[in-house]
Design a protein around this nucleic acid. Structure first.
Lengths: 197, 197
DNA sequence: CGCCTATATATCAGTCTGATACAAATGCGC
DNA sequence: GCGCATTTGTATCAGACTGATATATAGGCG
């Protein structure tokens, strides 16, 4: 077997909160765990179909509008809850995540420090944006869900995001310094060459 | 178009250092950028075949041993170098990386703090192992490749790994504390219930 | 001589993304 | 009340990528 379909567990977890459509699942996942987990429709719809066939979820209700449009709302079954609990207890299989930024920097010597510097600067801007968003979410969840028994669990993922982004920004500082020094050295060489030649 | 084949750029970058076989590419990628980039054979071999057809790489030499065994050594072409440079200058497309640990913690309320605590402890042990390895690699590269013009670029990715892992360990501290408090609260409740009921 | 490990190529089922297509409901300005 | 943009909603596809598996030789060691 290759890796297991993880989408199904995200679905089960979200359906345990309340019944939803495929579209609603995508929305909820984006809004709650979007900073570390996302699902595409091309993954959700086929997975929901398979899960229904396997009895992990069931059609809660199917709404037909006059025009013939369908809206399928799913709920989790007892089997689904069991499968979710089993997965939640199973150890996480570690795997190396691909980092395109670092790969481009690793080969950075082939194009010069200015290009690498631009990559780092864009990454820094992106991280700063995410950090601001996450801080807002943090505040929001803290107040709107005050006293909710699952709040400490939700807060863990936000803290992971905050600490990770802060570390990334510190790395950006270092990297920018290194690359600026490289760019400067290169310029000096050019100048010297020009003066002597 | 879906996402572009990134494997080809890793291949091009590595072949710029020296001609290699598919097997050698896998080895080199693992040893040099393995902490943030990996390639599987199922990805490498078909990609190499396509790249040869497109003229990005060429067969440097093909070694036939008496038994009929083949060893295909590829080198990068001028076209390949151009394609690599273009990619290196193109901005990185940001994307959310899936984090299975955080997803399990997010739904942690469904199974109790002990299970979540076990996940964090395993993750911490893994991170400590990686950190130790990365520190060794750091030392090794620093000495064995002293003065190499591309050393600063290589060092950037190692620093990213070190800072990221250190941040992760700090998060583990926080998370363990939170979860231990939750487990303790639950125990107190149980005790009280037992005493009263 | 057998056994293990490293070298080496190749294929496949299944996961997942990003794009695209289609269509109805809803809100909004004018 | 009309046109238009956005939101809600389901569905499919090519292509990327993983992890497993199959196959086979070379070299080292006891």
């Amino acid at each position: 077997m290759a890796r297991e379909n993880t989408c199904q567990f995200a679905i089960l977890g979200m359906l345990c909160r309340e019944p939803m459509s495929g579209y609603g699942l995508r929305q909820t996942i984006e809004r709650t765990v979007g900073h570390f987990w996302q699902e595409s429709y091309g993954n959700l719809y086929p997975t929901l179909e398979r899960m229904e066939a396997e009895g992990l979820v069931a059609l809660d209700r199917e709404e037909h509008s006059p025009g013939g449009r369908v809206r399928k709302v799913y709920r989790v079954t007892a089997d689904g809850r069991r499968v979710l609990s089993e997965w939640l207890r199973r150890p996480v299989v570690p795997h190396v995540e691909r980092n395109e930024l670092l790969l481009k920097l690793f080969f950075g010597g082939r194009v010069g420090p200015e290009d690498s510097l631009a990559h780092v600067e864009r990454s820094r801007a992106e991280a700063e944006g995410l950090l601001a968003t996450l801080r807002l979410i943090d505040e929001d969840v803290r107040h709107s869900r005050e006293g909710h028994p699952e709040l400490p669990y939700w807060h863990l993922s936000i803290r992971a995001g905050l600490l990770g982004l802060e570390a990334h920004l510190r790395w950006c500082d270092e990297a920018q310094e290194t690359l600026q020094r490289l760019a400067h050295t290169k310029d000096s060489k050019k100048k010297k060459k020009g003066e002597v030649g």
